Amino acid sequence: MTLHPSLASANQLRLGATLRRLDALAPGSVHLDIEDTSFIRNITFGLKTVTQVAEATSIPLSFHLMLANPFPWIEWLKPLKPGWVFVHAEALANPAEALALIRATGAKAGLAFNPATRLQSYRYLTHLTDSVLIMTSEPDGYGQLFNPWLISKVAEAADIFSASEIWADGGIDLPAAKRLYHAGAGHMVLGRAVFGSNDEVADYAANAAKFTEIEL
């Protein structure tokens, strides 16, 4: 199980200290949700902050572009050498173009799906998709609680996109992680599970170890 701590859940006034602590943890990536209210009702990181994050850590970066128009960001991220870039199927009339552009940056091309989106319609993109991210909660601003009904969607993604990495993202705790792993998700985006309610005192290593050491 590969863990990807989501920086949006960290204390935004202590990002430098948070990154130094994550360096010792050596996760699969530092995960950054890019939101500008065009796709969901939230604002997270601007390009200046993202660039400084990239300069402050040697950990690979994964980006989840929750944007109505991700194309400018795909170009802006290229100099930062991202490890993964996810775009949302729901935001794109022609996802193949975005996936090809992501691959041109050297990053793995990821396709993200909101809970209500049918996967079958995107089977034709399997040859362009390196990673698939299934939202396991509604990105709704109301606590983003894990929805167990979406475990079956993760299993469906693992079947349809059998050559791709399968990621799960949204409200994941220990019991959910175990079920998601068995359904086919080898990558977990974790927020509160790593940072807790107060990341200044949270023990990142201990919190992450609970996931990597569970009996799968």
Rank of each mutant, 00 (worst) to 15 (best):
1 M>C: 06
2 T>E: 15
5 P>K: 01
6 S>P: 03
9 S>A: 11
15 L>A: 05
16 G>V: 06
16 G>T: 06
21 R>F: 00
22 L>N: 00
23 D>F: 05
23 D>Q: 13
24 A>E: 10
24 A>D: 09
24 A>C: 02
27 P>H: 01
27 P>T: 07
29 S>A: 15
29 S>L: 05
29 S>R: 05
33 D>M: 01
35 E>N: 10
36 D>N: 14
38 S>N: 12
40 I>T: 13
44 T>M: 02
45 F>L: 00
49 T>C: 02
50 V>G: 03
50 V>D: 04
53 V>W: 03
60 P>I: 09
62 S>F: 07
63 F>V: 01
65 L>H: 02
65 L>M: 04
69 N>Q: 14
71 F>P: 02
72 P>H: 10
74 I>M: 11
77 L>R: 03
78 K>Y: 04
78 K>A: 15
79 P>D: 06
79 P>T: 08
83 G>C: 10
85 V>N: 02
86 F>D: 03
86 F>I: 08
87 V>P: 05
88 H>N: 11
90 E>S: 07
90 E>N: 06
94 N>H: 14
95 P>R: 07
97 E>W: 09
97 E>L: 13
98 A>M: 07
98 A>H: 05
99 L>K: 08
100 A>C: 06
100 A>V: 09
103 R>Q: 14
103 R>P: 08
103 R>V: 11
104 A>E: 11
106 G>Q: 11
106 G>F: 13
106 G>H: 09
111 L>V: 12
112 A>C: 09
115 P>F: 10
116 A>F: 14
116 A>P: 15
116 A>I: 10
117 T>M: 13
121 S>D: 14
122 Y>W: 15
125 L>E: 08
126 T>V: 14
127 H>T: 12
128 L>C: 10
131 S>V: 12
132 V>G: 02
134 I>D: 03
138 E>V: 10
139 P>H: 08
147 N>P: 09
149 W>H: 12
149 W>S: 10
149 W>I: 08
153 K>I: 01
154 V>K: 09
156 E>W: 05
156 E>R: 10
163 A>H: 15
163 A>G: 14
165 E>A: 09
166 I>Y: 07
166 I>T: 03
168 A>E: 01
174 L>N: 06
177 A>F: 00
177 A>L: 01
180 L>P: 03
181 Y>M: 09
185 A>V: 01
187 H>M: 11
191 G>P: 02
197 S>H: 13
198 N>H: 13
198 N>V: 00
199 D>E: 01
201 V>R: 05
203 D>P: 05
209 A>R: 11
209 A>F: 07
209 A>C: 11
215 E>S: 12
